[in-house]
Lab assay of single mutants.
Amino acid sequence: TETYTFDSEDQAEEFAQRAQKKGYTVEKRKENGKFKVRVE
C-alpha cells in the first residue's frame, strides 16, 4: 500500500484513474488542503 500526495485535485484524479486502469484499488481523500491517493 502506497499513499501519494498531490497539490491539485486534477493531478490526484488523473493518477487515480491510471492506477485503477492497472487494476489497483484506489482511495482518494482530501486532507489539509492536499489530495491524497492511497493505492493497493
Rank of each mutant, 00 (worst) to 15 (best):
residue 1 T to R: 10
residue 1 T to A: 14
residue 1 T to N: 10
residue 1 T to S: 13
residue 2 E to I: 15
residue 2 E to S: 14
residue 2 E to W: 15
residue 2 E to R: 15
residue 2 E to Y: 15
residue 3 T to A: 05
residue 3 T to H: 06
residue 3 T to F: 11
residue 4 Y to R: 05
residue 4 Y to W: 11
residue 4 Y to N: 02
residue 4 Y to I: 04
residue 4 Y to K: 03
residue 5 T to M: 08
residue 5 T to V: 12
residue 6 F to C: 00
residue 6 F to I: 01
residue 6 F to S: 00
residue 6 F to Y: 02
residue 6 F to L: 01
residue 6 F to Q: 00
residue 7 D to Q: 05
residue 7 D to W: 06
residue 8 S to N: 12
residue 8 S to T: 14
residue 8 S to V: 06
residue 8 S to D: 13
residue 8 S to M: 07
residue 9 E to T: 03
residue 9 E to K: 05
residue 9 E to D: 08
residue 9 E to M: 07
residue 10 D to W: 12
residue 10 D to Q: 12
residue 10 D to G: 08
residue 10 D to K: 10
residue 11 Q to T: 08
residue 11 Q to K: 10
residue 11 Q to H: 07
residue 11 Q to A: 14
residue 12 A to K: 00
residue 12 A to E: 00
residue 12 A to V: 02
residue 13 E to V: 06
residue 13 E to F: 06
residue 13 E to G: 04
residue 13 E to A: 07
residue 13 E to I: 08
residue 14 E to W: 09
residue 14 E to F: 07
residue 15 F to S: 01
residue 15 F to K: 01
residue 15 F to W: 05
residue 15 F to G: 00
residue 16 A to K: 04
residue 16 A to F: 10
residue 16 A to P: 00
residue 16 A to D: 01
residue 16 A to T: 05
residue 16 A to G: 04
residue 16 A to E: 04
residue 17 Q to N: 11
residue 18 R to I: 12
residue 18 R to C: 14
residue 18 R to V: 10
residue 19 A to V: 10
residue 19 A to F: 11
residue 19 A to S: 06
residue 20 Q to N: 07
residue 20 Q to M: 14
residue 20 Q to P: 01
residue 21 K to F: 08
residue 21 K to T: 08
residue 22 K to E: 14
residue 22 K to L: 15
residue 22 K to R: 12
residue 22 K to I: 09
residue 23 G to K: 02
residue 23 G to P: 01
residue 23 G to A: 02
residue 23 G to E: 02
residue 24 Y to T: 03
residue 24 Y to W: 09
residue 24 Y to R: 04
residue 24 Y to C: 09
residue 24 Y to I: 05
residue 24 Y to Q: 05
residue 24 Y to P: 01
residue 25 T to I: 13
residue 25 T to Q: 11
residue 25 T to G: 06
residue 26 V to N: 01
residue 26 V to Y: 04
residue 26 V to P: 02
residue 26 V to S: 03
residue 27 E to S: 13
residue 27 E to K: 08
residue 27 E to I: 13
residue 27 E to M: 09
residue 28 K to E: 04
residue 28 K to Y: 13
residue 28 K to G: 03
residue 29 R to Y: 15
residue 29 R to A: 11
residue 29 R to N: 09
residue 29 R to T: 15
residue 30 K to R: 10
residue 30 K to G: 07
residue 30 K to S: 10
residue 30 K to P: 07
residue 30 K to M: 13
residue 31 E to Q: 05
residue 31 E to K: 04
residue 31 E to H: 06
residue 31 E to S: 05
residue 31 E to W: 05
residue 31 E to G: 03
residue 32 N to G: 12
residue 32 N to T: 03
residue 32 N to W: 04
residue 33 G to H: 04
residue 33 G to R: 03
residue 33 G to K: 03
residue 33 G to F: 03
residue 34 K to R: 08
residue 34 K to P: 00
residue 34 K to Y: 10
residue 35 F to L: 03
residue 35 F to Y: 12
residue 35 F to D: 01
residue 36 K to D: 04
residue 36 K to M: 15
residue 37 V to S: 00
residue 37 V to A: 00
residue 38 R to M: 13
residue 38 R to Y: 14
residue 38 R to Q: 11
residue 39 V to C: 04
residue 39 V to D: 01
residue 39 V to R: 02
residue 39 V to W: 03
residue 40 E to Y: 15
residue 40 E to C: 09
residue 40 E to D: 10
residue 40 E to H: 14
